[in-house]
Design a protein around this nucleic acid. Sequence first.
DNA 1: GGCTTGACTTGATACGAGTAGG
DNA 2: CCTACTCGTATCAAGTCAAGCC
Length: 909
Amino acid sequence: MEHGSDSEDDKPLIFKRSNTSVKQNQAKPRCQKIISAEAVWQVGRLISDVRSTNGHDSNVQKGKTVPSTKGSPVVSPLASPKASVSSSKASQVKPPVASTKASTSGADQSRQNSQQNRTAIVKAERPSGIPKEEPDSGSEDSDDDKPLNSRLPVGGSKGSISEVNRRPSSSGPAAFEKDLGIKEEDSEDDIPLSHKFKQKSNAGESSNAYDSDEGKPFASKPRQNGTNVKDNVKNPSTAINKRPSAEVKCSGQSPVKKATVQLHLHQVRKLTVKAEPKKEADDSDDDNATISQRVKKPATPISKASDKKKSAVSVSSSLNKVNKNSKKITKSTQFSKSLKVPPGSGEGQKWTTLVHNGVIFPPPYKPHGVKMLYKESPVDLTLNQEEVHMIAVMQILTEYLTKPVFRENVMNDWKIILGRNHIIKNLDDCDFTPIYEWFRLKKEKKKQMSAEEKKAVKEEKLKQEEKYMWAVVDGVKENVGNFRVEPPGLFRGRESIPKMGKLKKRISPSDITINIGKDAPIPECPIPGESWKEVRHDNTVTWLAYWNDPINGKEFKYVFLAASSSLKGQSDKEKYEKARKLKGYIEGIRTAYTKDFSSKDVTKRQIAVATYLIDKLALRAGNAVATYLIDKLALRAGNEKDDDEADTVGCCTLKVENVEPRNNPLLKLDFLPKDSIRYQKRVEVEIPVFKAIQQFRSGKKGSDNLFDKLDTCKLNAHLKELMPGLSAKVFRTYNASITLDEMLNKETKGGDVSQKVAVYQHANKEVAIICNHQRSVSKSHSTQMMRLDEKINKLKNFIEELKTDLSRAKKGKPPLKGSDGKTKRNMNPEAIEKKIAQTNVKIEKMERDKETKEDLKTVALGTSKINYLDPRITVAWCKRYEVPIEKMFNKSLLAKFAWAMDVEPSFRF
DNA sequence: GGCTTGACTTGATACGAGTAGG
DNA sequence: CCTACTCGTATCAAGTCAAGCC
């Protein structure tokens, strides 16, 4: 709960993900419109109050979205008719940008502000000559004001999904398309996605790999040496199957094997518990340590504090040494060998011994003693009641105030706790101002704390948490990922409107099931008088604890080991090995599905086309929607008609309306996949694919499934026939990694480190685009760009001045006064020329920076780095091109990818 | 064969620490 | 030294997928 929540933790709430609200706001303009007058009044009043005290409070800022109901009378909101709302809202929500912005620091700008910023940016960035997306969908400028139901076409195939949908992504996709060199509109202008692939992967090959190569836009040619490398690196059979049962029986493996595994996989850091204290000292001698040795150190939590310094030193010192080290690394064959041995022992067994201390709970709620007002009068609340409203206050104020569903859910859950006869009946009559003020002051105080105080608080917290931070798995100390139980709060989903605002109740030990080794001591329950729900000893799973999700009781929240643990590392490695294995099959698979494009069997044809899309466009399979729909229907039975909420889809669940054939063979894809991050691209496809899709669409409504004979189960079952263990997601990993590998090898030309890094980033960006990894444009993006422009202009003016000075100096005259009116000292012409050159370099750098910044404003590079790019590609490339690995991976990535550090420089994906 | 359940990965974002630049 | 921005990290929602059940 660390974020945003008070360090004292005496209030349960968190300010996370507030941005979702933006999305939602954007996504559902209607929500904004319907917002109740009461809501506006209520919060507006609160906020104006607070603001008058201090316009800087972050939460206030978040809340400032709220229309300037400032002036609104202190009147029971109940009285205000909804009708007034929309209008007031319309006028309120939009304008605040300019005015409120001025009063707030960027960091805490309201969601709406950022939304508007984004929108503005999007619009601005669209070249004027280029028509907007979808002429047939109407102007998107007006989208904000459009009712939700106009956003998603029902039954029609004409995409009326406005660009401003959901996400700020409005800018995202646009930028993405820009990246692809694709113009937004008309089919004639459409440049197919495949062009990108051509550039990307076929730089050296025939100009159109795609068309000429039977639909293998990616790396169609299997790399010969790949096989060798693979063999070098590992014994595929061992690595690919999860903890192969044949391998090692747990009994047989015990002490000896365990030791090997530890030593190898965890090298230095992963000493056995006993050995641990000593070892830290030992390997502080980094000069001779391998990258992975160095990398691993920080993971030992006990020494974390002191380790921080140490690792910082080691990392930076290694910056210069990596290259030397890389040679050493390659020699350390013992480590490479070790990678062949999976940590688990067979038969689905993930561990043999497991010791940990359970989980830590958020501190109990401390009442603040400040009374809220209900219909103007103070109200007494019990602790529980207060806790709920405390949560509500914070979140309502910050972001969700405009969402009726949110408010409704909050109130529903609060009512249960208030009891039937409580005087509080209506959220709109609640005035939380006093509490909010109290909270604000507290936060302020915290901010004012001196560095020492802050440090002390931090240390205290660390002390409390320390024992929960690690577990001992098969004698090896590993970090635990999320050892903190989620604090109570209000649910904030991304698009699942019906659940938003529901209370996530406080989790108690009796909700928690612990998983631990049979012989390990059962963790003491940290809350006196309570006990765990259950204690298990299941070594076929990796979780240490779980509880039922308070929002959807059927789902679980797990506590797992950290990403840097060997268990995670091993499965990560297996994932990439599987993807590498696909490399050997891909050609056959592509040939096969190409053949099936025209199969007489509809199911076969659908599987072929779906596989093609998954392969070519890195689409996800799209399984989630099934459960999601079920869930939703259950929740909203009888309400479907009004349900204009967009569902997220994956490949198998694409709707007819999501895939629109344009000019043969151009397809327009537009849908909302995971997290409702809009996927909007135009793709040139094989003609048979185009035709098949036309067939699949014929006779269906826009909301019908494009692939009616298909689901992820069938698709994956089919994929498994083609390659053992193959499933849809492997294609994503494969295509991401192979793209990186190829681009790096094609485009790295030498130059200095920063140039090489730029090549890497470029490749990384391509991958992010393929995977549709977007991010919202930072709130301050446009300001930042403007600032850069200013600076550049200043420098340019400076150069002009210098030029004048130069010509004067050549004539022996003194320089003119500077633009600031100050007299400049005399300089000789050479010095002036030098200065001009320096300044030019500066300008160039700034312009480059500006370009990159603009370029990446909607692209998130991190996700692919963490999840899709085989780290061995990066490590090997670093070794080959003498780039310090620390330039590419930050500390946590280094820890996560420790298993990849020993790879041979010749490694190719 | 379809649905449910369980376990695990993937994903964007909020926030704060660290740092470069004025 | 201060400020603005970048970067790292924690968080938790939302996916994938396979096993098991009916």
